[in-house]
Computed example of a mutant assay.
Amino acid sequence: MVELEQGTPLEGGVASDVRVVQTADGPIVVKKALAKLKVAADWFSDPARSMIEVAAIEAFGDLGGRETVPEIVWVRPEDNSFAMRLVDSRLRNWKSDLLAGTIDPATARRAGEILGRCHANSAGRTDLATRFDDRRYFLELRIEPFFEHVAVKKPEIAGLIRDVAHRMLSRRQALVHGDFSPKNILADGGDVVILDFEVTHWGDPRFDVAFCLAHLMLKSAVADAPLNMVPAIRAFLHAYSLNGPSLIDRDLAQVTACLLLARLHGKSPVDYLDRVDTGRIEAKASDLLAMQHPPQVSDFMLPELSK
Rank of each mutant, 00 (worst) to 15 (best):
M1Y: 10
E3D: 13
L4R: 08
E5G: 08
Q6L: 04
T8G: 03
G12P: 09
R19T: 07
V20C: 06
A24L: 11
G26P: 00
V29Y: 03
V29P: 04
K31T: 05
K38I: 10
V54I: 08
A55M: 11
A55R: 15
I57N: 10
E58L: 13
F60H: 10
D62W: 00
G65A: 07
V69A: 08
V73A: 02
W74S: 10
V75G: 03
R76H: 03
P77H: 04
P77K: 11
N80W: 10
R92S: 15
K95V: 10
L98W: 03
T102F: 13
D104L: 08
D104Y: 04
A108S: 07
G112I: 01
R117F: 06
H119Q: 11
N121C: 09
S122C: 06
A123H: 09
G124V: 00
R125W: 00
A129S: 10
R136N: 12
Y137G: 12
Y137V: 15
L139R: 14
R142C: 09
I143V: 15
P145Y: 02
E148A: 14
E148V: 12
H149L: 11
V152A: 14
A158M: 00
G159W: 03
I161R: 05
R167N: 12
M168L: 14
L169K: 13
S170Q: 15
S170G: 15
R172E: 15
Q173P: 07
L175F: 11
G178L: 13
G178F: 13
K183D: 08
I185L: 11
A187D: 08
D188Q: 15
G189R: 07
G190S: 13
L195G: 09
D196A: 10
F197L: 08
E198F: 11
H201L: 14
W202C: 08
A210F: 08
L213T: 04
L213P: 05
H215R: 00
V222I: 05
A223N: 05
A223G: 00
D224V: 01
A225E: 06
A232Y: 04
R234D: 11
F236P: 03
S241N: 03
N243S: 14
N243H: 14
G244D: 05
P245D: 05
S246I: 12
S246G: 11
D251G: 12
A253F: 07
V255K: 10
A262D: 00
R263K: 04
K267Q: 11
K267P: 06
P269Q: 05
P269F: 05
D274Q: 04
R275A: 02
R275Y: 02
R280W: 02
A283E: 00
K284R: 09
L288I: 01
A290T: 03
M291T: 01
Q292H: 07
Q296N: 05
S298A: 08
M301E: 00
S306H: 02
